Amino acid sequence: KYLVLALYDYQEKSPREVTMKKGDILTLLNSTNKDWWKVEVNGRQGFVPAAYVKYL
């Protein structure tokens, strides 16, 4: 498993997404889509914009 760092705040806009705050450390679950990565944060799984996170 990889960890990624939230570069920006992101507010979920659909039930498939998750909210994150700048500085959050997220567990990367799937990065096959170049635009949306599946992550786990605070016990929830969902998608965030790939451009908003970077590998640690």
Rank of each mutant, 00 (worst) to 15 (best):
Y2F: 13
L3S: 09
L3T: 10
L3I: 10
L3M: 12
L3D: 05
L3R: 11
V4I: 09
L5S: 06
L5V: 15
L5Q: 14
L7C: 07
L7G: 03
Y8G: 06
Y8E: 14
Y8T: 11
Y8Q: 14
Y8L: 12
Y8A: 14
D9H: 05
D9P: 06
D9E: 05
Y10Q: 01
Y10S: 01
Y10G: 01
Q11P: 07
Q11L: 13
Q11K: 12
E12S: 15
E12T: 08
K13I: 07
K13V: 09
K13G: 08
K13S: 13
S14K: 08
S14D: 13
S14T: 14
P15I: 09
P15N: 11
R16F: 15
R16D: 13
R16V: 11
R16H: 15
E17Y: 05
E17M: 05
E17A: 06
V18Q: 03
V18P: 02
T19W: 04
T19K: 04
T19H: 05
T19M: 04
T19V: 03
T19E: 04
M20W: 02
M20V: 10
M20L: 09
M20P: 00
M20T: 04
K21Q: 10
K21T: 10
K22E: 07
K22I: 06
G23Y: 05
G23V: 01
G23H: 05
G23N: 07
D24L: 04
D24W: 10
I25A: 04
I25D: 01
I25R: 06
L26I: 08
L26Y: 10
L26T: 01
T27G: 06
T27R: 13
T27D: 05
T27V: 15
L28M: 05
L28I: 06
L28Q: 01
L28D: 00
N30V: 09
S31I: 10
S31N: 13
S31H: 09
T32F: 09
T32P: 05
T32H: 12
T32S: 15
N33I: 05
N33L: 09
N33D: 15
N33A: 09
K34C: 08
K34V: 11
K34I: 10
K34W: 07
D35T: 13
D35A: 12
W36T: 02
W36L: 04
W36F: 07
W37I: 08
W37E: 01
W37R: 02
W37D: 00
K38P: 01
K38Y: 15
K38Q: 13
K38D: 04
V39R: 00
V39H: 00
E40G: 06
V41W: 08
V41G: 10
N42F: 08
N42K: 10
N42D: 14
G43R: 05
G43H: 07
G43W: 03
G43L: 05
G43T: 05
R44D: 05
R44G: 04
R44S: 07
R44K: 13
Q45C: 09
G46T: 02
F47K: 03
V48N: 00
P49M: 03
P49D: 01
P49L: 04
A50P: 05
A50S: 14
A50G: 05
A51H: 15
A51Q: 12
A51L: 12
Y52R: 06
Y52N: 08
V53F: 04
V53W: 01
K54H: 11
K54Y: 10
Y55K: 14
Y55P: 14
L56K: 06
